[in-house]
């Protein structure tokens, strides 16, 4: 399922009236200074999200560029930083889903981090935990993975998650609860 950024932002903007809604649809491309500041604030977390949703660091590099390009070309005006950020993550989510669909057969086992080649006890145990998590995450559906990552890696609120994933805000609590319970059970099983 693709999430419509316009629908999300349009929905958010109805709160501030039609005039602002009309403004939101005016295409004004970001200037360099604004773009660079926004990129500096967000790129690392978007990349981490893409890397974990696709489980492919190189693909995350490409999708990062694509995410910002699509965001930039959309040229929308956002009410505030949160909406802007949500729109960005919404684009990233769509791209990650498309990429994952294109390579369904790829096994979701994490690629080693650069620093894990020096396998002392600490890094070895981190790598093992990461593998456990990756394997457990693989058993969830994409929306559950996205939801959990947004909630616990990005610290996104229920409302933000709803906007990013195009899910009704009222359902988030329950969906997140189910996803969390399932992941916790899988992690316990893999630790046992």
């Amino acid at each position: 399922m693709r999430i419509s950024v316009d629908a999300i932002m349009g929905g958010a903007l109805t709160e501030v009236g039609d005039r602002a809604g009309a403004e939101a649809r005016t295409i004004v491309l970001m200037d360099e200074e604004t773009f660079r500041a926004f990129y500096d604030r967000t790129a690392r977390s978007v990349w981490a999200y893409l890397a974990r949703m696709t489980n492919d660091r190189q693909l995350a590099d490409d999708l990062l560029q694509e995410t910002y390009y699509k965001f930039y070309r959309a040229g929308a005006h956002y009410e505030n930083e949160t909406h802007r950020r949500n729109a960005l993550f919404c684009i990233a989510t769509n791209l990650a889903r498309d990429a994952s669909r294109r390579r369904r057969h790829v096994e979701l086992v994490p690629l080693p981090e650069h620093d894990e080649f020096t396998a002392d006890d600490h890094t070895a145990s981190r790598a093992a935990n990461r593998t456990d998590l990756a394997r457990a995450m693989e058993r969830l559906n994409p929306r559950q993975r996205e939801m959990l990552w947004l909630a616990y890696a990005q610290g996104a609120s229920h409302e933000e998650i709803a906007q990013i994933l195009g899910v009704k805000a009222a359902s988030i609590k329950q969906l997140l609860f189910r996803a969390r319970r399932k992941l916790a059970a899988l992690l316990r099983r893999s630790h046992a």
Partner: peptide, 12 residues
Amino acid sequence: VATAITNDVPEA
């Protein structure tokens, strides 16, 4: 869950 995920945030 939150600990597992926050420990898994890759260095970008």
